[in-house]
């Protein structure tokens, strides 16, 4: 099997994640789509690691996971705060910037 298939998969998942971020309104789903994009990147990293025969890609992937964990913690806290004040998790409701 050609190893580049993993990369194609990674690209496809990333793109689907991007679409999800732009079209879904539920903040939690949007957030999950962001996680999907990060995971797609991780897959690419791991594949590159194998391609080049070094562990640097895996280390990068590891760091991505750590940062993603941080992001989830803060992001979910923001969603909770938002939900608490507006009783809604829709990102479209938080559109006060235009005024």
């Amino acid at each position: 099997m050609d190893i580049s298939n993993y990369l194609y998969l990674s690209a496809i998942l990333f793109t689907i994640g991007a679409v999800g971020v732009t079209i879904r309104r539920n903040a939690i789903v949007v957030f999950m789509c962001v996680e999907l994009m990060l995971n797609a990147c991780n897959l690419a990293f791991v594949t590159f690691s194998r391609l080049h025969g070094t562990l640097d890609g895996q280390v990068a992937s590891f760091f991505t996971m750590v940062v993603a964990a941080c992001e989830v913690v803060v992001g979910l806290a923001i969603i909770v705060t938002m939900y608490r004040s507006r009783r809604s998790a829709s990102v479209d409701d938080a559109s006060l910037l235009k005024r």
């Binding site: 939690i28 995971n39 791991v46 690691s49 194998r50 895996q58 993603a68 913690v73 979910l76």
Partner: peptide
């Protein structure tokens, strides 16, 4: 599973434990 298939055993386990276990639970 793909990670483990690509000789990234550690990341595969971490993926299951941290992501699927912790992060998804948080979600």
């Amino acid at each position: 599973i793909f990670y483990i298939a690509q000789d990234a055993l550690f990341l595969g386990i971490v993926q299951v434990v941290v992501y699927t276990g912790a992060v998804m639970m948080l979600f």
